[in-house]
Computed example of a mutant assay.
Amino acid sequence: MTSPGGTPEVLFVCVHNAGRSQMAAALLRHHAGGEVVVRSAGSDPAETINPAACEAMLELGIDLSREVPKKLTTGAAGAADVVITMGCGDACPVFPGQRSLDWELADPAGKPIEEVRAIRDEIDRRVRGLLAELTGS
């Protein structure tokens, strides 16, 4: 499924938009090379990105330092072909008619960098699978 312009749009959602969803969006953007429109948002956004998530992503050469947590809007969700929630349970709304996936992932908040790396690597594995599904490559 793709948006009217032919480019699939993906929205990653977690509660604070400071860790999991930011890492997922950055990884998909990195791997997709412009073939997918990527956004992320949170139902209750934090003030800043999780420093451990920034550190873990920088290890892959992806800089999150300019990213800011964003509030989830119905417009952003409505524009997406796929909405992926990331273990936020009832805190993340369901949008009827949208293709929705829930990736149960540990929250990196307060975790040591070793655990954040493991979360990042699991997100990366799932993102690569999603990209293959969306683009056929």
Rank of each mutant, 00 (worst) to 15 (best):
L60K: 11
V13H: 03
F12Q: 01
K71H: 05
G61L: 03
V37E: 03
A25R: 15
L27E: 02
I49A: 04
F12R: 01
S21V: 07
A24I: 05
G19T: 03
V15P: 00
I119Q: 05
V15Y: 07
N17D: 07
G129M: 13
L72D: 03
D63C: 09
R125I: 03
V94P: 15
A79M: 09
R39C: 06
V82N: 04
I62S: 11
A32Y: 13
D44F: 15
D44K: 15
E133I: 04
N50H: 12
C88M: 06
L58C: 00
G42L: 07
L131G: 03
P69W: 06
V36F: 08
T74E: 11
G129L: 13
K71I: 01
A41G: 14
G33H: 08
L60D: 02
R125C: 05
M57Y: 04
A46N: 04
V94S: 15
M57E: 01
A91R: 10
G5R: 15
E59T: 10
S40I: 02
V82M: 09
I62F: 09
E59A: 15
S100I: 12
H30G: 01
G42H: 05
M1G: 09
T135Q: 11
D102I: 13
L72F: 14
I123M: 13
P93C: 03
A25S: 15
P8L: 06
L134S: 05
H30Q: 04
D81C: 12
P4W: 12
A76C: 00
D63W: 06
K71Y: 03
E35K: 11
E35I: 00
I62V: 15
E122D: 12
A118R: 15
G110Y: 09
T2G: 11
C54P: 11
D121L: 08
A77F: 12
L101V: 07
E9S: 12
A80Q: 05
G6Q: 07
M86P: 04
L11E: 00
D107V: 09
L64V: 09
S3D: 01
E59G: 10
C54E: 13
G97L: 08
A132I: 05
F95K: 04
L131W: 09
P4M: 12
T74Q: 14
L28W: 04
T48E: 07
S43E: 02
E115L: 14
T74V: 12
K111N: 04
I84Q: 08
R99K: 07
R66H: 10
D102Y: 08
T135I: 06
R128C: 01
F95R: 03
A109N: 10
I119D: 02
P51Y: 10
L130F: 04
M23W: 04
T7N: 06
C88I: 09
V68G: 00
G89W: 06
E115H: 13
A56N: 06
V82D: 05
A41C: 14
I49N: 02
L131R: 10
A109V: 10
E115D: 15
F12H: 00
K111W: 00
R29I: 00
I113P: 00
A91S: 10
L105I: 08
S40L: 04
E67G: 10
A91Q: 07
S65G: 10
G87W: 08
G19D: 01
C54F: 05
T48R: 12
A24N: 02
G129N: 11
S21K: 11
S3T: 06
G97F: 08
E122W: 08
H30Y: 10
I123C: 14
R99M: 05
E9Q: 11
